[in-house]
Amino acid sequence: MSVKVYIEAIGAIGPGANNWPEWRSILRKEVAYQPARTVNPVLNVLPSAERRRVGIGVKIALASGLEALAAAGIDPSSMTTVFCSSGGDGENCHLICEALASSDRMISPTRFHNSVHNAPSGYWGIASGAMLPSTSLCAYDAGFAVGLLEAAVQCSVEKRPVLLVVYDTPYPEPIHGVRPVADQFAISILLTPDVTQGSITAIDVSLEKTPSTTMESSELENVRVGIPAARGLPLMQVLAQLPEQAAAADIYLEYVNQQSLRVKFVAA
């Protein structure tokens, strides 16, 4: 069984590129990829008190999501959302562990508040005024594919647009030694149930036992395998070539239980 939806807009931020137009130029080989640390985005959509409290995970998640909706000209308050991350805010987790290992074991209320897995969803609601449902998921390295399938099913069944936001941030040492995440990365994709004037392509998604699609560039492959959210790079690669690329081969994104999410591209 497959699920068909339409892709209308993309937002992305990660090592070497700060937004989707920059990633698109790299993936189209119009400019050479230059590895560099992810630049922390400025987030002005939250009240000043909230801006002081949020961590980098919230910043990159909201920045990429808002970029996708701005490209589509859609009011963020009107969106159903799906957020997915393998571990949330890695630095916040590290600081809580440090506090628990100290003599007084006192945890800052702000740290605890930001430790919950749906923190970006909550800050999204504050920033946008969105009142529609929001889902927060975690699936280790398979988060991008799990999030995409969840968002596609919601979009198809509920017959309304859904914004998928997948993000990851690294842990400091010593957690980094056992769960290495190379850098920050976030990708957001706006899905619609029906074709619109802004539709980039239609996709059919289904589960198969097929090896994951890799990146031709060794540097981009290092990004893909080094950051769970960057498992979406093969999808970004195809979307960067559209609409000039008349036909795109199916891609396979790492899922759970030795399965892959097959993404078949259909002309919009």
Rank of each mutant, 00 (worst) to 15 (best):
S121M: 14
G88R: 00
S128M: 06
G129C: 05
G87D: 00
M106R: 15
T110M: 12
G87W: 01
I96P: 15
G88P: 11
N114A: 05
C84D: 00
T110K: 13
S103A: 12
S86N: 09
G88S: 08
A101I: 10
S115W: 09
C84G: 14
G88M: 03
A99V: 09
F83R: 01
D89A: 09
N114L: 14
S108A: 14
A101P: 04
L100H: 11
E98V: 09
A127S: 10
G125I: 00
H117Y: 13
A127H: 03
D104W: 00
S103G: 05
I107H: 07
L100E: 08
R105Y: 04
I96G: 09
A130R: 09
S85T: 13
I126K: 09
A119P: 02
N118L: 08
S102K: 10
R105Q: 13
R105A: 08
S103D: 10
Y123Q: 04
H113L: 11
G122S: 12
S86R: 06
E91D: 04
C93S: 12
V116P: 14
S103T: 11
C97M: 15
C97P: 01
F112C: 12
C93D: 12
Y123R: 09
D104K: 07
F112E: 09
H113S: 11
A99E: 12
G125F: 01
L132V: 00
M106G: 11
S108R: 10
V82S: 02
E91N: 07
C97E: 15
P109E: 06
T110R: 09
G87C: 03
H117P: 08
S108C: 13
L132A: 03
S121Y: 00
H113A: 13
A99R: 15
G122D: 02
A101N: 15
D89K: 01
T110V: 15
S108N: 12
I96Q: 05
G90K: 04
A127Y: 03
S102N: 11
